[in-house]
Design a protein around this nucleic acid. Structure first.
Lengths: 233, 233
DNA sequence: CGCATATTTGAAGCCCATCAAGCGAAGTGG
DNA sequence: CCACTTCGCTTGATGGGCTTCAAATATGCG
């Protein structure tokens, strides 16, 4: 079950630098305390909010990884975004709409819950927040456009290769990195079946282009993958 | 060729009510005149800006229809958004990035070109703009999520059916409406080939579910299409 | 260890892309 | 005005890529 750990302590918050509150002056942090944002834990697959629910709160991810998911009546699902520590999500309430997707943790997570009304007030007083949010939205829109290109114009192997390359970018394309997504979750992200994902990964392992051990992955031959990926930018 | 028609006259602008400047007080409109936004005409397929170009201006569409397109090195393309009158686009410069897509008119268009630096200044002085822009971004992000679900989780017929239903919504699902997209452009939007699009449309015409005359379309049996579309929301 | 779950692998089939040809409407120039 | 071209759309035939169904193997967890 989810559990409320306590009130947020913005001043000492480890991920504030990565969040939309990074540029806030120290003085403003005291103010936020009045809002008493809640720090909440969720375990893996324990839904933070459901698609269609009234959107009364936004969230900032403090730890872990969250997937934003949309589901068709027939059960087919699509992961529309992956949320990392420092990212905020769940702003649909700003336009009076219910959540457009469900937010489901990929692992144990910790979020900071921000009531929208209070966030709205805070935003009005501090243009830095508005600015930071705006930049995030533009960035997210760009990433969504990139994803649409992936889904609409690329083949299975191309999508998977460019996903792996993007995923491994943080470690400079040459080290080991956690891959906390199951085959099925990778499939839901890329619009593929679990079998197709598994087949290509197995194949590329046999080719010696990638290796994998206990949930971590390592790209050995990025050239080959890059060629497969149909790189554009 | 594109041609600059003259300076914008915000006060008398026919589409201002639909734009991000709708809530601006009359007084502020005079200010904008100093910025002298340019009204520019483009003919169909005459690119407004190219993916990768430095993004120095944003645009508001006054008339016509624009497609935002991303292209792979091998030539495959994906329409990532359709822009209607009143919509603004091309904000990548706000985060210091080049345009993430190309903007290409589907027909003759008229745009209002806004230098980003000046728009930024105007935004700072008038929170209404910032607010309106924020709402648009949230809305666009929601639509992008919807599109990712379409592209990743639906089959050809389902994508096409729900596209037609969405397209015809403005006329209440029971009247004729312009469809200024060619088969090939519908394909680029839905991640399908021109032949697949043509086949289904022809089939549905034969079934008597839709009819089409000189670039206009009419849904006759929305129930059937709805069933095909895998409706979710 | 034993069970549940995730992954792999195989076989079959379908959906859609690809290749190819024909059709119709609009535009051009003689 | 009409042959000719062009372009978008249609329709057919074929093949391949990915899904689906199924079963075996690996992995993790109590």
């Amino acid at each position: 079950m989810s559990s409320i750990k306590g009130k947020g302590h913005c001043r000492s918050c480890a991920i504030r630098q990565m969040s939309i509150f990074a540029q806030l002056p120290e003085a403003a942090l005291v103010e936020i305390q009045h809002f008493q944002p809640s720090i909440i834990h969720f375990s893996a697959n324990e839904t933070v909010y459901h698609q269609g629910e009234a959107a009364s709160c936004a969230y900032t991810l403090r730890q872990g990884l969250v997937r934003l998911v949309k589901t068709l009546p027939n059960g087919r699902t699509q992961i529309v975004r992956l949320i990392r520590a420092g990212d905020s999500f769940g702003f649909d309430g700003f336009i009076g709409e219910p959540y457009n997707h469900s937010a489901i943790p990929l692992c144990e997570i910790e979020v900071c819950r921000l009531p929208l009304a209070e966030l709205l007030a805070l935003k009005r007083q501090h243009p830095e927040i508005e600015n930071a949010m705006m930049k995030r939205w533009i960035q997210h829109l760009r990433e969504a456009e990139d994803m649409m290109l992936e889904l609409g114009a690329k083949k299975a192997s191309e999508r998977l290769a460019s996903f792996l390359i993007r995923w491994c970018e943080p470690v400079g394309l040459n080290g080991w990195i956690e891959l906390p997504l199951s085959r099925s979750e990778i499939g839901e992200l890329l619009g593929l079946t679990i079998e197709t994902v598994s087949r290509f990964i197995s194949d590329w392992k046999r080719q010696g282009w990638i290796e994998e051990r206990q949930g971590r992955i390592h790209l050995l031959d990025t050239k080959q993958l890059q060629a497969l990926a149909c790189v554009d930018d």
